[in-house]
Design a protein around this nucleic acid. Structure first.
Length: 667
DNA sequence: CGACCCTGCGCG
DNA sequence: AAAGCGCGCAGGGTCG
């Protein structure tokens, strides 16, 4: 059976999980500096959940950190078996961050050639989430990776030999480092962070994981055969540890990677649990708005009536209201000058066809995006199970693949309903991005404007602008790089009141315009512009470009500047949100199980668990009895995240928390 | 028929 | 070009 750290306490031990031939997995225990911590063990996949659970229990000792290529693929089968892990290190996500980060720019990892570690997230097998079934998903034919760890399936011929020497585990005490950030503030120690790695500290008998051959040491020598996968994983992990310790601020990156990996665990857990979804409520809502369900491809009654009215009012008997070109032609024939068929554009027009057209567009959108077909494809057994893609956006935001989980319209949120005896705790970080801007720029005036209050109201109170709406549009303009319109007009006033914050985003924009790399609070860097961009800039700088090319080059430089201007804010907000959720997850896991009737999938059937995340908002599904405690935990974790990012800088990120039966009732 | 782009709109 | 960031998705339309 697996043991961790020979019973020592306060030692981070990693278990690297690698696919091995014969439907098995190799677990290699490592110390936090990448040296061997014990003998590797081979476990059949069927027995893996039990082994993992045993290591997680460890009699009150430290929990291991699981190191694996891809959390979604590795963790889903564990969850399906009801087994949860506390911490992990996602090699692929970590690689992506370290590859791009300005903090690890000169490391071997950053200079390595493009490899399997730079590949996109593997696709999830339908139904891998466990709790809910596979369903019929659009594009299901594209699923490829169904096996456990098959990013590159092990070939028997690929095996090589490596000495894995048992180093004197247990001989030396390695207390964990202080918590992640250089300015940890009041953060609770020891949370979701890997302990300090110790470069240069090598003990006799340690085997470098990537070494081959047999090594005799003062203790024991073990020679065994390992798969190419295992060698790759160990080598990559070491490369990452080296890159981190070589960075100017290792703790910053350790925190980021721990939070990113925790996010991957959360995504897997949310897909396992699913978002509670009342199909009957959804169906009722659709029927009320659209008319009774009809076969896919047909228009429900209400839509058909609207389409007919539009045809009558425009005099276009054959009009297809789903075709923008058709609609445009019909409007012109009716004497209207419309350039596009966008709703906000049509709203300005005065004509009897406009009202039914706008209503048609609204309802038709509901039908195609979240109608019955969508429900059939994505909701199973009362759970909406989207496929989250942690790290799917360069800023660190998540993406989704299918299901449109990040665009759940307010129209259908009524269907998101807690199980009987359970509640939803919905929490939203109010005005997160401008607050993050105040934090990263160190703008005390802006931070002060938001302390304990609505930030936009605080900006109004400072006298910079006169209404909340103005404050909001001006702030958004500052973060997005508005140059014209109301937003552009208000910017100078904002800049006078908050010069530090405005200078910060201005600098980020200038850096981007030069092609320089910008970086989030915790160390996630934006990509550099592509080859084409550089070529255009070079031609412009050499004076080789004609007027059109010159203005295009300048335009591209401004565009990239707007991207980097926004990146520093958006990516730092994503840093914060990941820390928030990671800390929350740890707290929720510590709640005593509660025997309540419910339909939540084990291991979450007796305790609060995250079911939804959207940039600055989360939903926790909880036994009703625990709802208040969950609300308190959400606030506490927000405070932890704020301290982890900003230390003692006097800033707060207040939450708007609602305890509701239905998502539609959240504030 | 699929691959691809465009339009439009949902979310933050 | 709604004034400016980041996304995903569906449907129409075109091309090969």
């Amino acid at each position: 059976m697996l043991t961790v750290g020979g019973g020592r306490e306060n030692v981070d031990v990693y278990f690297v999980l690698s696919a091995a031939p014969g439907d098995s997995v190799i677990l290699t225990p490592l110390n936090d500096d990448g040296t061997a911590a014990g003998l590797a063990e081979r476990v059949g996949r069927a027995d893996l959940p039990a082994s993992v659970e045993a290591a997680e229990s460890n009699d009150g000792g430290p929990r291991p950190r699981w190191v694996w290529r891809d959390t979604a693929t590795a963790y889903a089968p564990l969850l399906a078996a009801g087994v949860r892990v506390e911490r992990c290190h996602d090699l692929r996500l970590s690689h992506a961050i370290l590859r791009a980060s300005s903090l690890t720019a000169e490391t071997a990892l950053a200079r390595a050639s493009v490899s399997q570690w730079d590949a996109a997230a593997p696709l999830q097998a339908p139904g891998a989430a466990g709790g809910a079934g596979a369903g019929t998903r659009a594009g299901a034919g594209a699923w490829e990776h169904t096996a456990l760890f098959d990013l590159s399936a092990p070939q028997p011929g690929d095996d090589q030999t490596l000495a894995s020497a048992r180093a004197g585990a247990g001989e030396t005490e390695f207390p964990g480092s202080e918590p992640g950030d250089a300015r940890p503030g009041e953060a609770r120690p020891g949370e979701f962070r890997p302990a300090e790695a110790r470069p240069g500290e090598t003990r006799p008998g340690d085997a470098r994981p990537a070494e081959t051959g047999t090594r005799t040491t003062a203790t024991t020598t073990v020679t065994r055969t390992i798969s190419a996968n295992e060698a790759d994983d160990l080598a990559e992990f070491r490369l990452q540890l080296d890159a981190i310790s070589a960075s100017p601020d290792p703790n910053r990156l350790r925190l980021l990677l721990a939070a990113e990996s925790a996010g991957a665990l959360i995504a897997a857990e949310m897909s396992h649990a699913g978002l509670p979804w009342r199909e009957d409520v959804h169906d009722e809502l659709l029927t009320e708005l659209l008319g009774p369900r009809v076969a896919a491809g047909l228009r429900p009654e209400r839509l058909e009536r609207l389409a007919e009215r539009i045809r009558v009012e425009t005099g276009a008997a054959q009009l297809n209201p789903d075709s923008p070109a058709d609609v445009l032609k019909a409007l012109r024939n009716a004497g209207l000058t419309a350039l596009t068929t966008r709703s906000w554009e049509l709203e300005k027009l005065e004509h009897p066809a406009i009202a039914p057209l706008l209503e048609y567009k609204k309802l038709s959108r509901l039908l195609s995006a979240n109608g019955w077909s969508w429900m059939e494809a994505w909701v199973t057994d009362g759970r909406f199970v989207p496929d989250y893609v942690p790290g799917g956006v360069v800023s660190g935001r998540w993406a989704t693949r299918g299901g449109g989980a990040l665009q759940l319209p307010k129209q259908v949120r009524r269907a998101v309903t807690a199980d009987e005896g359970w509640m939803l705790v919905v929490a939203d970080a109010a005005q997160l991005e401008p607050r993050i801007l105040a934090g990263i720029s160190g703008d005390a005036a802006m931070a002060g404007a938001g302390r304990g209050t609505d930030l936009y109201a605080g900006i109004v109170a400072s006298g910079a602008v006169s209404t909340r709406a103005e404050a909001k549009v001006a702030m958004l303009g500052a973060m997005y790089g508005a140059t014209t319109g109301e937003s552009g007009r208000l910017l100078p006033r904002l800049a006078r009141a908050y010069p530090t914050a405005l200078a910060f985003v201005e600098n980020a924009a200038r850096a981007g315009g030069r092609g320089d790399v910008v970086t989030s609070r915790l160390g996630r860097s934006a990509p550099r512009p592509g080859e084409e961009w550089w070529e255009a800039q070079a031609r412009a700088a050499e004076g080789a470009a004609n007027d059109a090319e010159l203005s295009r080059a300048r335009q591209q430089a401004r565009d990239w500047g707007r991207f980097t201007r926004n990146f520093v804010v958006q990516a730092s907000a994503a840093d914060w949100a990941l820390c928030w959720m990671a800390d929350l997850r740890r707290t929720l896991a510590s709640f005593a199980p509660l025997a309540v009737p419910g339909r939540a999938a084990p291991p979450f059937d007796r305790e609060p668990h995250l079911v939804f995340f959207l940039h600055d908002e989360v939903i926790v599904h909880t036994p009703a009895e625990r709802a208040d405690a969950v609300a308190a935990a959400l606030r506490a974790s927000a405070a932890v995240a704020t301290r982890l990012l900003f230390g003692s800088f006097p800033i707060d990120v207040p939450l708007v928390v609602s305890i509701v039966a239905s998502y539609a009732d959240a504030a």
